[in-house]
Amino acid sequence: MIEWFAWAQIVVAVLAGLLCTGLGLFGRRPTDLSMGATALVELLLLAQLVVAIAAPFTGNNPSGSVLEFYTYLISAILLPVGAATWALIERSRWSTVILGGACLAVAVMLYRMLQIWTVQGL
């Protein structure tokens, strides 16, 4: 993991999460804005997957469990996809809240992944 990229990603995920949760609680159905924010979080996760695969080749190795790291990463990649699928099927305000919840969960998981990569096992 590249530390600044991970932090930028966490910030984006938190902002997207707050935005979608807020829009949902204000009664908005999923729109291009909330779906776009979730898509951005997903795109960054896919970038993170590429970074995670490439980093060890540049000497940037995880300090903790590789298996645990990838379990988090794969789960995190599935979350926005699941929430967005839900939002496409059920176009209600609660689907927007769920989009937000998924983004916030991704933020927490990214933080755990950063811990596993940088401080776990040291």
């Binding site: 469990s65 298996l67 645990e68 379990t71 988090y72 789960s75 599935l78 979350l79 699941g82 929430a83 839900w86 059920e90 209600s92 609660w94 689907s95 809240v97 769920i98 919840g101 998924a102 969960a105």
Partner: peptide, 27 residues
């Protein structure tokens, strides 16, 4: 309604519990 959010949180916890237990048992 809000039951959807409850179900989503259940799904999330199911994912979290499955992920953790997979790592624990595998490692």
């Amino acid at each position: 309604g809000i039951g959807r959010v409850l179900i989503a949180v259940y799904g999330l916890l199911a994912l979290a519990a499955t992920g953790r237990s997979f790592v624990q048992i595998a490692e």
